[in-house]
């Protein structure tokens, strides 16, 4: 399958309210960051954990967030960031415009007002 996102895209992490072997921690849900790496295709851990080893495969991305966006009271330096891996189905294109100090890799930040792919949740 083709990935929906590319490096530099601003993306928001969805809340899919799924139970099971979920690799998307709560602290990044609803948060917006920038794709910094397309890691390729992987079997979905949510499937693997229940014995489904035949796929389908899903895209995995590394997404970078401003720490201040994750934690409103973040006490470190304002430029501090966090990178985390998010599978494609947990992401949607960000609807908000880029904030001033987006992470470095977002060299070409276009206000991502593209029509939002409504998340096809749980493709399992």
């Amino acid at each position: 399958m083709r990935g929906r996102f590319k490096v530099g895209d601003r993306v928001t992490v969805l809340e899919l309210n799924k139970a099971g072997h979920i690799r998307t921690p709560f602290y990044v849900r609803h948060k917006t960051g920038v794709v910094v790496q397309d890691c390729g295709l992987f079997l979905n851990p949510e499937d693997l954990a229940v014995g489904i080893t035949s796929g389908p495969v899903v895209k995995l991305y590394r997404v970078q967030f401003q720490q201040r966006d994750l934690w409103p009271d973040y006490k470190g330096a304002p430029q501090d960031t966090l990178c985390i891996e998010i599978y494609d189905h947990w992401l949607e294109a960000a609807r908000t415009t880029a904030r001033k100090s987006a992470p470095k890799p977002a060299s070409k930040k276009k206000p991502a007002t593209r029509k939002k792919n409504e998340p096809r949740s749980a493709r399992a």
């Binding site: 890691c39 430029q79 501090d80 966090l82 990178c83 891996e85 998010i86």
Partner: peptide, 10 residues
């Protein structure tokens, strides 16, 4: 700049 990497998946 401090970059934290959460090694949460693959």
């Amino acid at each position: 700049e401090l970059v934290v990497h959460d090694s949460n998946a693959d």
